[in-house]
Write a protein that binds this DNA or RNA. Structure first.
Lengths: 133, 133
DNA sequence: CGGCATCCCGAAGGATACTG
DNA sequence: CAGTATCCTTCGGGATGCCG
């Protein structure tokens, strides 16, 4: 799988459509945000991330970290010791992003109940006939 | 924060309670945000959304609208005329969400160049052999 | 310890066609 | 106009194994 695609047709599609989507694509991954949150308190090691983020696989942790690093959001520092030691930290830009994510957190917490209620009401209204067979 | 130890990871253990992921799951769909943005200026019709959001399929427009409606973010108003007329609008809660999304937009616009540059640098550093051929 | 390579599955979403 | 229904492809991501 080559990320670098020289094929012109691949770029024909409107890649840079909406800036909102642009940022969401960057954070939409299942684990990106949790990694950003975990690293927002200071440098953190690979294994610490792995243990701290419940349910993440080693593969996805690596992949997500690589993507974040590629986007200039995460720094990777290798200490050539034995055993090896690698620490991940957030760049200033990522810290800014983390700030705005806190706004979203706030919204989610304030309206979590409202949404759950809306869902229940919608489901009750639109799925009553599932009981028949 | 000179004290970096298990304290950092201990705060991340509660993953499923993470409200950030909760809101992101709700908005992570490919079209959700664009619909919210399009409807943020006032009630908008189905076809207007379809034409306004480039690339969206009729199917996904319907599905995404249903999910947003289910979560209490979008209102659906049917006018029993001929031909039928359906208007979609945002609830107050969704308008709040839209506000916070604007912060993300702002971040994306301010740092879009930085990220593009970081990507280019990363790719140049990690795949140099593709340049020569 | 901190990865990368491989296989595989389910869900998201595109294409197309039909309808009240 | 505003949807539904069906089929099909893509791909994110889980499981597992090996390696410096």
């Amino acid at each position: 799988m080559s990320r670098r695609n020289t094929d012109a047709t691949a770029q024909v599609v409107n890649v840079h459509a909406c800036p909102v989507r642009e940022v969401l694509d960057r954070v939409a991954g299942k684990w990106s945000v949790q990694i950003l949150v975990a690293a927002s308190h200071g440098p953190i090691r690979f294994t610490e991330l792995e243990r701290g983020i419940e349910g993440i696989s080693r593969r996805m942790l690596t992949l997500t970290l690589r993507n974040l690093e590629r986007d200039g959001l995460v720094t990777r520092t290798v200490y050539p010791t034995v055993p090896p030691r690698v620490e991940y930290g957030l760049t200033p830009v990522a810290l800014e992003l983390h700030e705005t994510l806190l706004r979203l957190t706030d919204w989610a917490e304030r309206n979590r109940g409202y949404i759950a209620q809306a869902r229940a009401a919608y489901d009750a209204e639109h799925q009553p006939e599932l009981l028949d067979a």
